[in-house]
Amino acid sequence: MEYILLIIGAILVNNIVFAQTLGICPFLGVSGKISSSVGMGAAVVFVITLATLVTFLLNQYVLVPLSLGFLQTIVYILVIAALVQMVEIILKKVSPSLYSALGIFLPLITTNCAVLGVALLVIQKEFTLLQSLVYGFSTAIGFGLALIIMAGIREQLELQSVPKGMKGSPITLVTAGILALAFMGFANLV
């Protein structure tokens, strides 16, 4: 039950894009088409879950025992960058079809602040390893969900006539704001 609440909380109530405003750059950048947003969402789920696992273990067994907590930021960002690179290399070898589907989105993920954000948040919230993994995974699902909903709306928006000054990012931001308002309706769910 505890884990179900954690999952619902991370996907709907505290949605990483609409409630915590993390990972906005890829959210605005890649939400133009449904197909590419599905690819990006899948890549993010993969990397966030893996990054949460590695950074959690590293923090627990290396940084804390050696009292090197102040190196957290540097170590985490290096781990994430290395991890993304590694995932890219492994995918290329093991599953070329998945690689070509995720291809261009993988390198972009290093600068997705949702990845580093989740890694730092699970330490701050003092989660256990399993809780961290569940939280990381469902947060990433929430990110993918936000991306796909937004892409669906933007595909429709292409066909509408938007005032000149509002074209492009302004209308996207306002749409995201209205979506965020809708997501606030989930607030009392947990």
């Binding site: 609409f18 405003t21 302004p170 996207t172 931001l173 306002v174 704001g177 209205i178 965020a180 308002l181």
Partner: peptide, 10 residues
């Protein structure tokens, strides 16, 4: 809250 951020910036 978060929705206001998106709307005002937009």
């Amino acid at each position: 809250l978060a929705p206001g951020a998106f709307i005002v910036l937009g």
